[in-house]
Simulated scan of single mutants.
Amino acid sequence: MTDPVQQETRSSAAPDADRQSSDDADDDHLSDLEDGVGCTEIWEHLSERRAEASARSTERAEE
């Protein structure tokens, strides 16, 4: 089992620049959304992206 205190210490020891680039990579898929949108808007946005990706995948498979 992981010690939460040690885990927090390790993660807080990371430089801010590393944390920032990691955060940016984690939320790039939300860059099209405006600040302040709610859960429903985020859910719709993600669903649309998945549907588009699925459609592209199906088109490639048919070629």
Rank of each mutant, 00 (worst) to 15 (best):
P15W: 06
S57A: 05
D16N: 08
G38V: 06
A61G: 09
D23R: 00
H45C: 09
A53Q: 08
A55R: 12
H29K: 13
A53D: 02
L46K: 11
D3N: 08
I42D: 04
A25G: 09
E8C: 14
V37E: 04
E59Y: 02
E8M: 13
R49V: 08
D23I: 01
D27W: 05
A51N: 14
C39E: 04
E44G: 03
S57M: 01
A51H: 08
T9R: 07
S12I: 11
Q20G: 04
Q7I: 15
C39M: 04
S12R: 03
S11Y: 15
E8I: 13
S57C: 02
P4K: 02
T58G: 03
A17M: 11
P4N: 04
D35K: 06
D26R: 02
E62N: 14
S54D: 14
H29I: 07
R50N: 04
T9V: 12
L33P: 12
R10S: 09
D35E: 15
Q7A: 13
Q20S: 07
A61C: 08
E8V: 10
S12C: 14
S12F: 10
A14Y: 09
A61R: 12
P15D: 15
D24S: 01
P4F: 06
R10C: 11
R50M: 00
L46W: 13
S22C: 08
T40R: 11
D16F: 14
E52G: 07
T40D: 01
P4S: 02
E62S: 08
S22I: 03
S11N: 09
L33R: 08
E62F: 06
D23M: 00
A53Y: 06
D18Y: 14
E59D: 07
L46S: 14
S12Y: 03
D24K: 00
E52D: 14
R50C: 01
G38Q: 11
L46N: 09
E44K: 08
D35I: 07
Q20W: 12
V37F: 04
D26E: 10
S54P: 00
E34H: 02
Q6M: 09
D3M: 06
D35A: 12
D23E: 12
A13L: 10
Q7K: 12
S11A: 09
L33C: 05
E62C: 05
R19L: 00
H29F: 12
A14S: 07
W43A: 10
E62M: 04
D28M: 05
E34L: 06
E52K: 15
E8W: 15
P15L: 07
E59F: 00
Q20F: 10
A13H: 05
A55D: 13
S54Y: 05
S21D: 11
R19V: 02
E41A: 13
T40K: 06
P4L: 10
S11P: 00
D35R: 01
S54T: 05
D28T: 01
A14P: 01
D18Q: 15
D35F: 00
S31L: 15
R50Y: 05
M1H: 00
L46P: 02
D3T: 15
D3Q: 11
D18E: 14
R50T: 02
R56N: 05
V37P: 03
